[in-house]
């Protein structure tokens, strides 16, 4: 199946190549795909560029770690206390579908125009799916599973450790995967907007300096790197959930 998929992409690139060479598309706006792909290759072997990738991934993991820890604790509390859950779960869900990213100037004002602001913004956004999925995962553990524990007179801790947690883990993990995806998106987007940090900054600089080939090559690389990253965490999820 992937062969066909790659073929679809290749055919598309070849069509663009032809359009650019015949000047059907203005070559000033769009470099030849062959050139852009070649540039991607040179960038990937270029230590400076790999440094940018490392910066972006570093910010991503920092934001994710924050969101994961806080999100799972808050999600647990919302599940533990019924009234807290009833009061704030809808609020978290509403925030999840709001344009949190647009609040970035506030983060700049408070934390400064730096990576900390980006990490904080990404974490604030990603904490929301973590909370929601943790809470819902725990709520969804079937009564029967819990009754098995009760009928064996398990202690509260054993019940949590051996039944509740493993039963909820797959859904919590899905929440974490979504959180990680969002952190990456927010980090790259903010790097681009603020022109600081790693990959996003590179895109912004390329466009500012009007380096079309670099611009397309870096956008292409971002697509490939985020896709690879997301593929990896999806695989990890499948592996963990068997």
């Amino acid at each position: 199946m992937w062969i066909v998929r790659i073929a679809v992409i290749v055919v598309f690139l070849v069509l663009v190549e032809i359009a650019v060479r015949t000047e059907l598309i203005n070559p000033f706006f769009v470099p030849r795909p062959s050139e852009a792909v070649a540039r991607m290759g040179t960038r990937l072997t270029d230590g400076e560029f790999l440094g940018l990738v490392a910066v972006t991934l570093g910010e991503t993991f920092a934001g994710f770690a924050l969101a994961a820890v806080v999100g799972m604790v808050v999600g647990f509390l919302l599940w533990r206390s019924r009234s807290l859950g009833d009061a704030f779960e809808p609020l978290v869900a509403a925030l999840f579908s709001s344009p949190i990213v647009l609040l970035y100037p506030i983060f700049l004002v408070i934390l400064g125009r730096n990576s900390t602001a980006i990490v904080a913004l990404a974490a604030v956004f990603a904490v929301l799916p973590t909370i929601l999925f943790t809470k819902q995962a725990l709520s969804a553990v079937s009564r029967t599973m819990l009754n098995v524990g009760r009928s064996l007179n398990l202690s509260a801790w054993s019940n949590f450790r051996h039944i509740l947690l493993p039963a909820a883990a797959p859904t919590i993990f899905t929440g974490l995967r979504i959180a990680l995806t969002y952190v990456l998106i927010v980090v790259v987007a903010m790097e681009y907007i603020l022109q600081i940090g790693g990959l996003g900054r590179f895109v912004s600089e390329s466009s500012l300096l009007f380096r079309a080939t670099d611009l397309y090559a870096s956008v292409g690389l971002i697509v490939i790197i985020s896709a690879a990253f997301i593929w990896a965490i999806n695989r990890l999820e499948k592996l963990v959930q068997r």
Binding site: S207, S226, I230
Partner: peptide, 26 residues
């Protein structure tokens, strides 16, 4: 569906804002 879904899914999960400079060109 099986052919295109992963492509759309992976491209969809990319921060689309990075396409903004290309749109500005056009």
């Amino acid at each position: 569906y099986r052919l295109l879904d992963p492509l759309v899914y992976y491209v969809g999960a990319v921060p689309k804002i990075v396409l903004f400079p290309i749109l500005i060109l056009f």
